[in-house]
Design a binder for these strands. Structure first.
Lengths: 204, 204
DNA sequence: TTCGTAACAGACCGTTTGGTCTGGTTTTAA
DNA sequence: TTAAAACCAGACCAAACGGTCTGTTACGAA
């Protein structure tokens, strides 16, 4: 076997992810990616069949990292016994990591590729939906016992409430971009955590 | 003064808004806009100096409609005396209009242009920020008395809480696109309304 | 040492892009 | 009636785009 190309491949993926989440999919040209990754046309098309193939491989890698973050969050609250406290702590875990998240990335790759209709209906969609469902299911499992044990009868749908975390993340990214202020992500996650705390712990 | 060209101009704007919110800014070519609006290169560049000028005029028009929706929502709840009930009804107003909104548009123009970094730092940014601040200020004014009169002492920041409506809208759009399900927008606004209701009305 | 193949490098190509330019048409004020 | 100005049509253009192709280099197996 000849020389190892995984380093080049990773470098291209890293650069492409940064550029595309920053500027958008179509706004990022392959020449730009190639130049920024100190690579070449030949190297690029050796590792990727096309630009949309790059997008797919990018999303697959992003999904893996996303699901890892989910597992990390679940593990961090697994030892909390009280259902309500556990669900709230789960959100707080990401609230605490918000600043770090925004320092690492200026947007979400999901929103980036979903903004371009040409990538919809492909394998990319399925990957994003898969990850989003994983978050919904996992968080809903935390929420259901908490909702059942709430001081007052709560009629909120657990899955829609679980989806609201994804909504807060995605909406938070856009809010941050609107005001060029990364700290607003933490603020929005905090608001959601406080709202959830009120729902799950306050009496009638 | 010669013949009236405002009809042509509006047709181009309508088509461009639909195509761009659907596919993205860079993914939408001028030729596509021109063809779909049954226009011509000459007509287009008579009304718009460039593609980015089109984006600016689109956003300006979108902001006007957006602020009109805000005023409409404020007017709808102006006669409600109880602060908490008024704030909740404000959110409910948009919850009720969610299905109609999603039938009219598949995304938000703000998110579309913010996704492309090349338009950031221009007048477009200022327009979007202006509209978003208007929503924040107006909603925060509704929230403050409601928070003060809440049964238990609430420490939630009024402006961040107000921003959460914008967050829910933008995040909701992306959630809808993730699952190709427009009904999720109403579900997310409902979740926010229920959370807010709990915060403002439930006891300690 | 040779040989095969993965890993590149970069010239090249057809198409599409945003934008220009020239010419023609409609409308109203004078 | 006419002149001017707004309105529009479409051929045209240079640049940038995604993608191909030919050639070269590095490295492990034989």
């Amino acid at each position: 076997m000849p020389r190892d190309g995984t380093a080049t491949r990773e470098r291209i993926l890293d650069v492409a992810e940064r550029l595309m989440t920053d500027q958008g999919y179509n706004a990022t040209s392959l020449d730009q990616v190639i130049a920024a990754s100190d690579s070449s046309k030949g190297a690029f098309f050796h590792h990727f069949r096309s630009k949309s193939d790059l997008a797919l491989q990018l999303v697959e890698r992003y999904v893996r990292a996303d699901l890892a973050h989910l597992e990390e969050g679940l593990a961090a609250v697994a030892d909390i016994d009280d259902p309500a406290a556990r669900a709230v702590a789960f959100v707080r875990h990401f609230e605490d990591g918000a600043d770090e998240l925004m320092a690492a990335q200026s947007g979400c790759l999901y929103a980036t590729v979903l903004a371009e209709r040409e990538l919809v209906g492909t394998e990319i969609d399925a990957q994003i939906a898969k990850a989003t469902v994983a978050w919904r299911d996992a968080f809903a499992d935390l929420l259901r016992p908490a909702l059942a044990a709430a001081p007052r009868h709560v009629v909120v749908d657990a899955e829609h409430l679980a989806d609201h975390l994804y909504t807060t993340f995605e909406g938070g990214f856009i809010l941050c971009r609107t005001f060029t202020d990364p700290s607003l992500m933490r603020a929005q996650l905090q608001v959601f955590r406080q709202l959830l705390e009120s729902l799950l712990t306050s009496g009638p």
